[in-house]
Amino acid sequence: MFSSTQQFFKSYFVQSLFWIPIIFFSGLLVFNTLPYFTFSKEYRFIQERILLFQLPFYSFCFYTHIAAGSFCIVSALLQFSSTILKSRKKIHVWSGRIYVLVVLLIGAPTGMFMAFFAKGSNMERGLFMVMALIWFYSTARGLQTVLEKNILAHKQWMMRSYAMAMTAVTFRIYHILFYYFGWSHLENYEISLWISVVGNIVFTEVILFFRDKKYIQSFTS
């Protein structure tokens, strides 16, 4: 009895260490995105791209992308709760449907469009494009596998999708951390971007590899 209680608290503690920072930073990201919806042009991010914001379609993509991204980050948090999945399955199903629709119809296409105008060199633009592509593909595969009732593959593909959605959060964490290393701004931006994208992919694949014995099959199923 004692051993099982200890194990319960141990796993609970480890999970809390992982999820509490994620919930906090996700909330912070969404909270700080809200001022953009005043549609003011005074923000530094917009000021830096003021010529791009003269393109109506770019402005449209920007605002829909940040709205979709914020929604995805929040709704995805519900999807990973085993309590909701067991006791309130309808919430999981409907939240998942909306997440998939938002990613496939808004988030990934607008992300792909904006990738062409991303800051940095062509390598960084290419990275954003690959990111949008992986986000789109993994979400589409997640939908396809759940329709085929392949729950294991569905979990794996949705974890990959969430990893791409979370690059927005991890990028900012790395960017702030590396700022204290005294690197130049552009150097910091590029390194943070690469580490957040590649790091999230590797981290997810490592978790999947150690959790599921049928890891390799997830790519073919």
Binding site: L101, A108, M112, A132, A140
Partner: peptide
Amino acid sequence: IIVISTLLFVIASFMGIANY
């Protein structure tokens, strides 16, 4: 939805190139 979204994604890519 997958078909429509794929089309949308491809269109967004082309629009990105053209606008760029």
